[in-house]
């Protein structure tokens, strides 16, 4: 690994200043589970590495204010999975957090990092889309928030400008009952990168939402307000037609060695139907 300058700011403002100063020569270090590999392989050769873990404001913390749960950008998967409030309000996010890598990885990898990396296969992206997460950003021009759907752009790309960093991810606490489920497709049961990531929800008014990733440049969110998908009694053929539309935009990589495009497309349907059923069951339990 090439050497670099290591910075350990203690405030967000300091971090923003460093980022603004060094631009593309700087890399942010939170969990480092991707960055260290990228630096070792010289895929990234930053001049400055900015470690966010000593910023008091970002200290691993999950906060609740009655309407929102906010998860700071240095919060790791283990913290998310173990948090009773997240378990209660956002179980599908927990389901996605507990399958990111191994115990060792989850003790290190952050939720914000999972999203900021821009990996199409990020496990937490579909549930964050489903739960209408908002990304809190700090930058030279101050602070703002944008919906996760606008934040995720494409492979390796997120909506961050020069000098900007994510300070946290915020989730609105659902006011109505919601049933949600996360599932994924892997090559083995043990730790693996997913060939499909998929999250479904069923909400009041017969709205079903499906978010899925790893089958195109970014995770996408599709809403079905016809009531068919959310209806436990709807005939399979009708659901099938709608699921065809839901997954119509999937464009799995032709070059992937993890799964063929045909298999991924077919598994979207299988996993989609299964996750939907789980979501329906959970909605029934919740309401």
């Amino acid at each position: 690994m090439k050497t670099f300058e290591y910075a350990r700011p203690s405030t967000v403002a300091e971090a923003v200043a460093l980022l603004e100063q060094h631009g593309p020569d700087a890399e942010l270090l939170a969990g480092g589970t991707d960055l260290v590999i990228e630096m070792r392989n010289a895929w990234k050769v930053p001049k400055v590495v900015i470690d966010l873990k000593r910023i008091d404001e970002l200290r691993p913390a999950i906060r609740e204010n009655g309407q929102w749960i906010s998860i700071s950008s240095t919060t790791v998967m283990t913290d998310i999975a173990e948090d009773a409030r997240i378990q209660k309000y956002f179980p599908a996010l927990v389901e996605s957090a507990v399958v990111v890598g191994s115990v060792q990885i989850r003790a290190r990898a952050t939720l914000a990092g999972n999203i900021c990396n821009g990996s199409p296969a990020a496990d937490t992206a579909p549930p964050l889309l489903i739960y209408r997460a908002v990304v809190a950003i700090a930058g030279p021009a101050g602070r703002h928030k944008i919906p996760i759907d606008d934040f995720i752009v494409g492979p390796g790309k997120v909506a961050l400008g020069r000098g900007e960093l994510v300070t946290g991810i915020e989730l609105p606490i659902p006011r109505q009952p919601i049933g949600a489920a996360y599932t994924r497709l892997t090559r083995r049961r043990g730790t693996d990168l997913a060939s499909i990531t998929l999250c479904c929800s069923v909400e009041e008014g017969g709205v079903a939402r499906i978010a899925y990733g790893s089958v195109g440049p970014r995770a996408v969110l599709v809403e079905d307000s016809s009531g068919v998908l959310a209806d436990p009694g709807a005939p399979d053929e009708r659901k099938s037609e709608i699921l065809d539309e839901v997954f119509a935009d999937a464009s799995p990589s032709l070059r992937s060695m993890r799964a063929s495009p045909d298999y991924r497309r077919a598994m979207l349907r299988v996993l989609g139907a299964r996750a939907l059923q789980t979501a329906i069951d959970r909605f029934g339990d919740a309401s």
Binding site: R187, R188, R189, G190, T191, D192, L193, M257, R258
Partner: peptide, 10 residues
């Protein structure tokens, strides 16, 4: 990462 061998969960 992409050569998979059995883990304790397999």
């Amino acid at each position: 990462i992409d050569y998979r061998i059995p883990t304790s969960m397999d």
